[in-house]
């Protein structure tokens, strides 16, 4: 919580899309990517802090851009399940907007 506060800091207030993206993230992504409940998983889901602030995604290979992240969300990768059919296009855009802010 402290880390999150520090990370979010006191930057610009979130846009409407970022706030919507946060809600989607909190419901759909954070159970694996934030929680401590993943302790029993053989492959630890990567943290997504600053996802777009590095040249590559946490795999160290894939370029960190919208198309790549969108593809992974929809199709899944390794132990991450596919989320195709669970997001509308505006929801996906909102989620990406939030991930850019992280």
């Amino acid at each position: 919580m402290i880390a999150l506060l520090a990370a979010v800091g006191c930057r610009q207030a979130p846009t409407e899309a970022e706030a919507e993206g946060l809600r989607i993230y909190a419901m759909q992504c954070s159970p694996c990517h934030e929680a401590t409940a993943t302790a029993g998983l053989v492959v630890a889901p990567p943290k997504l802090q600053g996802l777009f602030k590095h040249a590559t995604l946490p795999d160290g290979v894939t370029p960190a851009n919208d198309a790549a992240v969108r593809g992974i969300i929809l199709d899944g990768r390794r132990t991450m399940p596919p989320f195709a059919g669970r997001f509308s296009e505006p929801q996906m855009a909102a989620l990406l907007a939030y991930l850019h802010r992280k």
Binding site: M1, L4, C10, A26, T36
Partner: peptide, 22 residues
Amino acid sequence: ISPSRIAITVLLFALAGCRSSQ
């Protein structure tokens, strides 16, 4: 769903913390 509930609470706090200074 408790992990996501906790996450929502935590994340909303984080956002609220940011908002309050605006």
